[in-house]
């Protein structure tokens, strides 16, 4: 084969690979093909299948899409706990899973909380997972650590082990994630106050102000 042909072959190969690389990069890092914008509204109302605590007949509902491994979510955990305690007669809080792909243990944390929920201790597990985030976030044996939490919570460990691996729990977590995507959630935590997307408050006072405003104005 003459030199010219060889140059053509290798140059076009390099060119095609380059084009594909640039294309793959822009598709993968650019906005998703169908950017979902639900006009800042929550796509799925709070139902009985959600994890909700606080007021029985709330004036204000707060829904959070959260990832157990996201540091910001752990920071907001304290704030939300405080609000739920302070407004326990008017505010309800719903936790929905939105584990992100770049957090290797987020999913198993979600499964652990759901499995604890099967034994009535969702919120207890939720608290432990967030409060001790630093202990498990980057570990390779996170699911073992969660099992330790299950033990501390005096759960039936055999049942926990079955539940944590069950399709039912995986489906519940991915259901949450799907409703989040439909609502236009693209980062964690994302809060919805009375079904409307809320700017993440920068302090507890700001969160309080938002809740008070919602109590008065519905």
């Amino acid at each position: 084969m003459d030199t010219q042909k060889r140059i053509v072959i290798w140059a076009s190969a390099v060119l095609i690979i380059g084009i594909i690389a640039v294309g793959a990069w822009s598709i993968a890092t650019g906005p998703t093909t169908t950017p979902i914008n639900n006009n800042g509204l929550l796509s799925e109302e709070v139902t009985a299948s959600d994890w909700t605590k606080g007021a029985q007949n709330p004036k204000v509902t707060l829904v959070e899409y959260s990832d157990f491994q996201c540091p910001a979510c752990a920071a907001y955990f304290e704030m939300v706990e405080q609000a739920v305690t302070e407004y326990d007669d008017r505010l309800s809080f719903t936790y929905r899973h939105f584990p992100l792909a770049q957090h290797k243990n987020a999913q198993s944390a979600s499964y652990a909380s759901e499995a604890a929920g099967k034994q009535g201790k969702f919120w207890e597990m939720h608290k432990m997972i967030f409060e001790q985030q630093a202990d498990w976030a980057e570990k390779n044996n996170a699911s073992e650590i969660f099992k330790g939490y299950a033990q501390e919570l005096k759960l039936d460990l055999a049942r926990y082990a079955t539940d944590v691996a069950s399709t039912e729990i995986k489906d519940a977590v991915s259901h949450d994630r799907d409703t989040g995507l439909r609502s236009g959630v693209d980062s964690t935590p994302s809060f919805y106050l009375n079904g409307k997307k809320m700017q993440n408050p920068r302090s507890y006072d700001e969160l309080k102000a938002l809740i008070e405003f919602a109590i008065v104005n519905g």
Binding site: P99, L181, D186
Partner: peptide
């Protein structure tokens, strides 16, 4: 780069990728 993987068929992309 991170971020959710849009799964045009099924819903398991993130489950598998993470």
């Amino acid at each position: 780069a991170g971020g959710p993987i849009p799964c045009f068929i099924g819903t398991g992309c993130d489950t598998v990728a993470s």
